[in-house]
Nucleic acid binder design. Structure first.
Length: 702
RNA sequence: AGCGGGAUGGGAUAGCCAGGAGAUUCCGGCGGGCUCAUAACCCGCAGACCGGUGGUUCAAAUCCACCUCCCGCUACCA
């Protein structure tokens, strides 16, 4: 039996992967939450009863370790981040119906119920395994926190994997001379008894589950190897005291593995929401037609009798959501996820985001720049397909905001409403043309299809595409001429444009809720923009409304220059710190960019005008950490160039240096100085290119 | 190593599951137009043998096989 198309009559829950209470949020995290928020709003838009829930992931070794390092209790440490997230999400218009955390009472109780259920159903086995311990402080160590020597290649290795040498996976106890990463104390392996969830009980069930699973393809395909191979038992306990106690075992310091209580927070958070929302039945969503149904098989009828569970996660945690989690649910007699949407990664300026290297754009930072959250939401949701990687760069951000939001949808709505208000005090009394009527219907259809197909990107794009049509339509009919020539026709065209604007407001609401509300208010519509059904896109707008305001503000290129510079400096600082710390591998371990695949023709090369020049003057630019203002004599003329050399060269020694100048580089303005050309230099150290003989100044470089 | 994903005009991105006329859109380039609108908007042009090699088919960016290069996953970090 196949699923009913979304929307269905059953309640739905949309969840996002839990943020781990161990650090601040950056644009990479935000992608998942924006997608979840957008999708849950879209589901409601098409009439699906939906809860959007999440919570902070509080337990686990890293929290315990970092808390200890700061000398605070793990709970206190994690709660601090929890509070930070809880405030941060709404600032991006990410509005969970419930945002809990894994250490709260609801989740603790529910998690223990799950485990008890597995015990009752005989899915738990006990086994003795080798666990690493810090021998001096008497603390257990995950293998990830153990380092030593690889028994195969002799390289330095981590306890679970020879990460720098032969890449081999290491079994617990294999590594030689083990020590603790955090304390440096010697580590030893001890035999401990632990509890395991017998995943093989669910092997057949999981195969069927994957066949039924909707969402992105990667979520279905990636776990296949595991599910069709041998499923190992999953160790669900840890030797530590930070976490949820394993029920029915007196042993102190035995808690559940965080990946047990973390996904259960999805259920707990839904339950907390239902306690406030009387019409929302959490059991109808999470259980099988509202009841627990035990066993290891699946009855296809249950699929349509139960609610719709939609998980949105990063693609690094697919196995947890498509193997462990459904087995956990089934083991407790619960419903299964209908779909898993696994998002690609977010890169920064074409490279991988890295918090350790500070190559990241932080959530707080974005807000501090004063950018509206809806701009980021649009950018990140429509930048590429959900399962593909997407790159964040300030340049691209400005380009897309200015082109697609300011120039296209913002401009269209503003010109349409302004024209209508000035000439008709609101919506002119005329009928919508067939063409526009159809166009809006198509957009509504496209919206409904995108919801059914989990096409987050398209959901974000529809309103902008409709506005794109609007601009073409208004241009084609030139109502500014018609007002005198053919008033009746003019009224009809403007009526069309106002209708298109109204449709835009409704259709853009999931991706840009605040901007949609503003537009809705400009139309002087009653109620909130997220209340009406989608077909309200064709309902007549108010006959009177006031003067509209511009919806979006242009991002200035000066702003972007400064942001780029900040990011560059930060990354440079972080890598400089790195080098100081790791004294061995500094100079010769320069990371080289891969060679470009694409070849360029001689003609293209001819377009590049490089000249021999000589620096005649150099002075540091105030307030800029790296920038230097140069005057470069290139024979024909002397150019002013701004270059990032301050920290790397002695500025006083620069005059007299012969350099190669890219003469037909676009002009740019940096810190108020025009830069007319670009001095060529190699790498992060800015090793200047020069000539070795005495080519005349101004000689072209070929 | 195994598995999964990717490679599309100068840059970015869609299309691929359900194969079919000129391959989408945005930025950039060139040439026009308009003036209601935020120097915005509209129209036109140039530019891609859809990573490579084979195969299936009347027809392949799309399906199949092999290859190259990138990225991710591989269970006791989350």
């Amino acid at each position: 039996m196949s699923h009913d198309k979304l929307p269905t009559d059953q309640p739905a829950v949309v969840t996002c992967g839990l943020p781990y209470a161990n650090g601040s949020l950056h644009v990479g995290h935000l992608r998942t939450y924006v997608a979840g928020d957008l999708y849950s709003r879209a589901l409601r838009r098409v009439g699906q009863q939906t809860a959007f829930v999440c919570g902070s992931d509080m337990h686990g070794t890293p929290v315990a370790v970092n808390a200890a390092r700061e000398g605070v209790e793990p709970r206190e440490f994690a709660l601090e981040f929890h509070e930070q997230y809880r405030e941060r999400f709404p600032q991006f218009n990410i509005e969970f119906d419930n945002y809990g955390h894994t250490d709260d009472e609801t989740n603790t109780e529910l998690t223990q119920e799950f485990v008890e259920s597995w015990i009752d159903q005989d899915h738990i086995v006990e086994k003795e395994i080798q666990v690493a311990w810090d021998a001096e402080i008497e603390e257990p160590l995950p293998d990830r926190y153990v380092e030593g020597t690889c028994p195969y290649c002799g390289e330095k290795a981590r306890g679970d994997e020879c990460d720098e040498g032969c890449q081999r996976h290491l079994e617990p106890g294999e590594i030689e001379n083990p020590t603790s990463v955090t304390t440096g104390n010697p580590a030893e392996y001890r035999t401990r008894e632990h509890k395991f969830l017998r995943l093989s009980d669910f092997q057949e069930y999981l195969q069927g589950f994957l066949d039924r699973l909707e969402g992105t393809e990667n979520a279905r395909n990636q776990p296949r190897e595991w599910i069709e191979g041998t499923l190992e038992d999953l160790c669900i306990t840890r030797d530590m005291d930070w976490g949820i106690d394993y029920p029915g075992d007196d042993r102190e310091d035995l808690v559940l593995y965080v990946w047990v209580d973390a996904p259960i927070e999805y259920v707990a958070s839904t339950k907390q929401y239902a306690e406030r929302a009387a019409d929302y039945d959490w059991e109808q969503v999470w259980k099988v037609d509202g009841e627990e149904a035990h066993g290891t098989s699946w009855d296809d009828e249950w699929t349509d009798d139960s609610g719709e569970i939609v998980h949105i996660i990063g693609r690094d945690i697919i196995q947890h959501h498509c193997v462990f989690w459904p087995a956990m649910l089934r083991g407790a007699g619960y419903n299964e996820p209908r779909s898993v949407l696994a998002t690609g990664f977010v890169g920064i300026d074409g490279k991988a985001l890295s918090t350790s290297r500070n190559r990241a754009v932080w959530a707080e930072e974005y807000l501090d720049e004063g950018f509206h959250p809806d701009l980021f939401r649009y950018y990140i949701a429509t930048g590429s397909g959900l399962e593909n990687d997407v790159d964040f760069s300030w340049d691209r951000f400005a380009e897309r905001v200015n082109g697609e939001l300011v120039g296209n949808i913002g401009n269209f709505c503003y010109r349409a409403l302004l024209f209508a208000q000035r000439n008709y005090d609101g919506t002119p009394d005329a009928d919508v043309s067939d063409e526009v009527h159809e166009r809006i219907e198509d957009a509504v259809d496209r919206f409904e299809t995108a919801v059914a197909e989990y096409d987050v990107r398209d959901l974000g794009q529809i309103a902008v595409d409709l506005a794109d049509f609007g601009n073409e339509y208004i241009q084609r009919h030139e109502p500014w001429n018609l007002v005198d020539d053919d008033p009746e026709q003019a009224a009809q065209v403007i009526r069309d444009c106002v209708q298109l604007t109204k449709a835009c407001a409704l259709l853009m609401q999931p991706v840009m809720p605040e901007k949609a509300a503003a537009l809705w208010a400009q139309l002087d519509e009653d109620g909130a923009v997220d209340e009406p059904e989608l077909d309200a896109a064709l309902a007549t707008p108010p006959a009177d409304f006031g003067e509209p305001a511009e919806l979006f503000t242009k991002v200035e290129s000066e702003t972007i220059e400064v942001l780029n510079e900040k990011l560059r400096e930060r990354v440079a600082e972080a890598s400089a710190d790195d080098e100081e710390e790791s004294d061995e591998e500094s100079d010769d371990a320069v990371e080289l960019d891969a060679l470009e695949d694409g070849r360029i023709g001689f003609e293209q090369f001819q377009d590049i005008d490089m000249r021999v020049g000589e620096i005649t003057a150099a002075e540091p630019i105030e307030d800029a950490d790296e920038l230097v203002r140069l005057e470069v004599d290139i024979g024909l003329e002397t150019r002013q160039v701004v270059a990032g050399l301050k920290q790397l060269h002695d500025v006083d020694e620069l005059p007299g240096t012969r350099v190669i100048l890219l003469a037909n580089m676009e002009k740019a303005e940096l810190f108020g100085y025009e830069s007319n050309g670009m001095v060529l230099a190699a790498g992060d150290e800015a090793d200047l290119l020069t000539t070795h003989e005495d080519a005349a100044l101004g000689t072209r470089v070929r």
